[in-house]
């Protein structure tokens, strides 16, 4: 029962902090571009506005245009509920298993790819095929790198891994741990459509990946798509920071631990977001044909991490 309450709190906190994370990332980028920036609260205003607009759907499009954004949103909410963000206690019947989380990621990815095809535009289909190519290269690395972290713990449950790393800080700086976290960072950036794989603020249809798939969505549909893909960023970035810095994650349901968990998550998440946004200023988007090289590199790192975790324990 307490696990259910904790997970509800975790989802609500994630929903509340996600627009702020995007706002901070955009604001850091604006400041480094010598701009003033729209303020960290702009994503809240954007979503509120989109929810009040009439959704307009293309002639001849199927109900996929209505349901795919909802599938993405629900899958993202489930990922947020399962990944250990503020608490390491998980449901007994649905553990935060590595394979469950990766499958949920794929459900959202496929929903988005189908949505891109449904609009019937050339750019949507192009975005879908690119998105699936990146997903096919990303998922094995996610599995391998978290698997490397799960070997010393003896469990593929994410919350158990985070809890074990928190209890034994020596685990965090093992070669296997470091390699796996670096590989995870690269694939998280690719999966959430950040530079250098995809540019979230591009206006050029030919270079789009994520943006190209949502070109045909408007109003409420677009709001669900935005919130759904932002929540994926929160969940994956939160997972990475909790694996890299596994301190402050609530181990039990006492109110004090819970408050500490929320504060620690918000601080770690916003700091990680600011670092990612600052690093993006120094990067150009990779040519699409170079993306597999980057992702293959991250797979090699993950593979080395698995090897090292067996050899060095």
């Amino acid at each position: 029962m307490t696990a259910v309450v904790l997970i509800i709190v975790q989802v609500l906190v994630a929903l509340a902090v996600t627009p702020l994370l995007l706002g901070v990332m955009r604001q850091v980028r604006s400041r480094l571009e010598s701009r003033v920036g729209a303020g960290v609260l702009q994503p809240y205003r954007d979503v509120a506005k989109l929810l009040r607009k009439q959704p307009l759907r293309a002639q001849g499009s199927s109900p996929i245009l209505v349901y795919a954004p909802l599938v993405l949103l629900v899958s993202s909410l489930m990922i947020v509920a399962l990944v250990p963000l503020i608490t390491t206690s998980s449901l007994v019947t649905i553990p935060s298993d590595l394979f469950v989380v990766v499958s949920l990621l794929l459900v959202g990815t496929v929903a988005m790819a189908v949505l891109g095809l449904d609009g019937g535009t050339a750019f949507g289909g192009m975005g879908s095929s690119r998105h699936m190519m990146i997903a096919a290269l990303v998922e094995p690395t996610v599995l391998m790198s978290v698997y490397a972290l799960s070997v010393p713990v003896g469990s593929s449950t994410l919350s158990t891994i985070v809890a074990a790393r928190g209890l034994d800080p020596a685990r965090v700086v093992t070669p296997a741990g470091l390699l796996a976290v670096v590989a995870l960072v690269i694939v998280v950036l690719a999966e959430t459509g950040r530079l250098p794989v995809d540019n979230p603020s591009t206006h050029l249809e030919l270079t789009m990946v994520h943006e190209a798939m949502i070109l045909e969505s408007a109003g409420r549909d677009l709001a669900w798509l935005e919130v759904g893909s932002w929540l994926r960023l929160t969940a994956l970035l939160g997972l990475v920071v909790n694996l890299a810095l596994p301190w402050g994650v609530a181990a039990d349901a006492s109110p004090l631990m819970l408050v500490l968990g929320v504060v620690a998550l918000v601080v770690k998440l916003l700091a990680a977001g600011a670092i990612v946004a600052a690093a993006e200023v120094f990067m150009a988007k990779l040519r699409l044909f170079r993306v597999p090289e980057l992702l293959a590199g991250s797979f090699v790192l993950a593979f080395l991490a698995v090897t090292a975790s067996y050899l060095a324990g």
């Binding site: 604006s30 010598s34 701009r35 920036g37 702009q42 506005k49 249809e205 943006e211 070109l215 045909e216």
Partner: peptide
Amino acid sequence: GPVYDVERYGARLVASPRHAD
């Protein structure tokens, strides 16, 4: 652009009329 920066008032250019107000 960065000098007049209308984005600070909440306006943003988008790539699709479906996203536009």
